[in-house]
C-alpha cells in the first residue's frame, strides 16, 4: 500500500507549475489503478494466479484483472509467443485504450529463450510491440512479477510509460516488422487502418 508515500510527497514538492501538478496527479491516478489483462501464453500463465490471490495479492497495489482489452491498461505477456499467438497479442494490444502498457515476463520475449531455434516463435518481442517493463526469469516468481508492476508504476509516475505513443509514431516500423513474420497472413486492414489516419473523433 504505497499511497502517497514519501517518494511521492518529495516529487510533489519539486513541481512548479499548476499544469505540472495536474499531470503529476493524473499519472499518480494511472499508476495507482492498473487493470491487468493477463495474457497467459504458456508456462507463465501459472505465475499470475499466486500474484493476484492471497499469497501476494497484487490488488494491494491497485492491480486488478480486466476482462476485455477495452478495459485494460496493461497486458502481461507471460512467456514465449508463437506466431499465431503474437497475432492475437497484437490484436489485443491495439484494442486497448491509451495510455496502455506491456509487461513481458521471462526469457522468451527477450531473446527467444529455450525456443531460440524454433521455427514458429518470435525471438524479440520489442520488434513488434513497445514493451515497457521486462521481468527476467523462466518463469519469474510472483515477487518478480510484483517488482515488474512496481517498476511500471515508477515509469508511469515519471511520465515515461509512453509505449503507446511510440507505437503510434513508429507504426510503419512496427507494421513492417510484423509483416516480416506474418507475411501474407498479416492482420486485416480494419484492425489498424485508423493508425494511419487521424482516427476521427467526436
Amino acid at each position: 500500500m504505497d499511497n502517497l508515500n514519501k517518494k511521492d510527497k518529495a516529487q510533489l514538492k519539486e513541481l512548479k507549475s499548476p499544469m505540472a501538478v495536474v499531470d503529476w496527479a493524473v499519472n499518480w491516478f494511472r499508476k495507482q489503478s492498473i487493470f491487468m489483462l493477463a495474457y497467459g501464453t504458456g508456462c507463465g500463465a501459472i505465475e499470475i494466479p499466486p500474484t493476484v490471490t492471497a499469497r501476494y495479492d497484487a490488488e494491494r497495489f491497485g492491480v486488478r484483472g480486466a476482462a476485455t482489452p477495452r478495459q485494460a491498461d496493461v497486458i502481461v505477456l507471460s512467456g514465449y509467443l508463437a506466431v499465431k499467438t503474437l497475432k492475437r497479442v497484437i490484436r489485443t494490444y491495439e484494442q486497448m485504450q491509451e495510455p496502455k502498457y506491456v509487461i513481458a515476463l521471462g526469457s522468451c520475449p527477450i531473446n527467444g529463450g529455450m525456443y531460440w531455434d524454433s521455427y514458429n516463435t518470435i525471438k524479440q518481442l520489442d520488434r513488434y510491440l513497445p514493451v515497457d517493463v521486462t521481468v527476467a526469469g523462466c518463469m519469474p516468481r510472483p515477487e518478480a512479477v510484483l517488482e515488474g508492476f512496481m517498476a511500471l508504476k515508477d515509469k508511469i509516475q515519471r511520465g515515461e510509460a509512453e509505449g503507446a505513443r511510440d507505437y503510434r509514431d513508429n507504426i510503419e516500423k512496427y507494421k513492417n516488422n510484423q509483416k516480416e513474420i506474418f507475411g501474407d497472413k498479416m492482420l486485416p486492414g480494419y484492425t489498424c487502418d485508423w493508425y494511419f489516419s487521424d482516427g476521427g473523433s467526436f
Binding site: 513481458a104 520475449p109 527477450i110 524479440q124 518481442l125 520489442d126 514493451v131 515497457d132 517493463v133 521486462t134 521481468v135 527476467a136 526469469g137 519469474p140 516468481r141 515477487e143 518478480a144 517488482e147 515488474g148 512496481m150 517498476a151 515509469k155
Partner: peptide
C-alpha cells in the same frame, strides 16, 4: 531471482 528492466 528478481530482476526487472525497462530495456530489453
Amino acid at each position: 531471482y528478481v530482476y526487472v528492466s525497462e530495456d530489453m
